[in-house]
């Protein structure tokens, strides 16, 4: 057997892990429905059923709605990360990997990378459907890159939170529970309707939770409006939560496995 230093192989090993969990994603109809079909169905429902009654001050409701739908899609995928991590832990897959000459963190990073890649694919599909529904953006290349960056950051943030749940859980149900509070964040934000129509208490929550500044930033970038300080609020939320969740997940990972 070749025994060349293992760090040279870190990215190759990650690639193998990526292929493995991408197969998990593509072979799970359930995952595809939840992360792609559901958000599209929600977008159709809001635009063609409820949208007529929602006053957003924009010309087309789909233009207003799209950023929120993208975040819903990402939020929906988080539960699957904890589910898959839990199964890997429970079925001894991590033990197998850890007793092999590969970097100890490679299996975990493999799941993170998969989350990024699979979300990127589902978001592209959703944006394409939105385009068919009349969504148009005046954003240039740089704005789109900034949007991609923010979405990637949001994905990683939720994925690391989900990782804590998956690694610490004692049962499959426990691993999935984390999905519920995450699902609700986009709903109680400015993703679907402007916050000014909400009662004071809900409005206060909606305006001071991470999803609203992210949605507002993406909206501003999409339609060439001034981004203001929303982008900094959004970044601060994501980076702080991601960093804490990362440290916590790594701690659990080292301790439990």
């Amino acid at each position: 057997m070749e025994t060349i230093k293992m760090r040279n192989y870190f990215f190759m090993d990650m690639g193998v892990m990526l292929i493995r969990s991408m197969r998990h994603v593509f072979r799970s109809l359930d995952t595809i429905i939840t992360v792609t079909i559901m958000p599209i169905a929600m977008m159709l429902l809001f635009v063609y059923v409820l949208g007529g009654a929602i006053k957003t001050g924009t010309d087309k409701y789909v233009n207003y709605l799209l950023p929120g739908i993208l975040l819903v899609a990402i939020a929906n995928s988080a539960g699957y990360v904890s589910y898959r991590l839990f199964l890997d832990k429970q079925r001894g897959i991590f033990e197998r990997f850890h007793s092999m000459p590969i970097a100890r963190s490679a299996p975990l990073w493999g799941h993170m990378l998969t989350s990024l890649v699979s979300n990127a694919i589902s978001l592209v599909v959703i944006i394409f459907v939105a385009f068919l529904m009349g969504f148009r953006s005046s954003a240039g290349m740089l704005s789109w890159l900034a949007i991609a960056g923010i979405l990637a950051l949001f994905t990683l943030t939720l994925t690391w939170i989900a990782a804590i749940a998956g690694l610490a859980a004692k049962s499959v149900d426990g691993a999935g529970v984390i999905a519920y509070p995450i699902h609700f964040l986009p709903l109680i934000s400015s993703a679907f309707v402007p916050t000014k129509s909400m009662p004071a208490g809900v409005k206060a929550f909606a305006e001071h939770q991470p999803v609203t500044p992210i949605v507002e930033t993406i909206r501003a970038l999409l339609y060439n409006k001034p981004v203001g300080n929303q982008i900094w609020v959004a970044l601060a939320w994501c980076i702080t939560i991601m960093f804490c969740a990362y440290l916590c997940a790594m701690r659990v990972y080292r301790k439990r496995l």
């Binding site: 493995r20 197969r23 079925r91 897959i93 197998r96 092999m100």
Partner: peptide, 22 residues
């Protein structure tokens, strides 16, 4: 417990480990 990846085929499981063993 047999630590095989149930979503993958037998062949894919083996190829995965062979790749990880470089």
């Amino acid at each position: 417990f047999a630590a095989v990846d149930e979503v993958l085929t037998g062949r894919e499981n083996l190829v995965m480990i062979a790749r990880l063993r470089h």
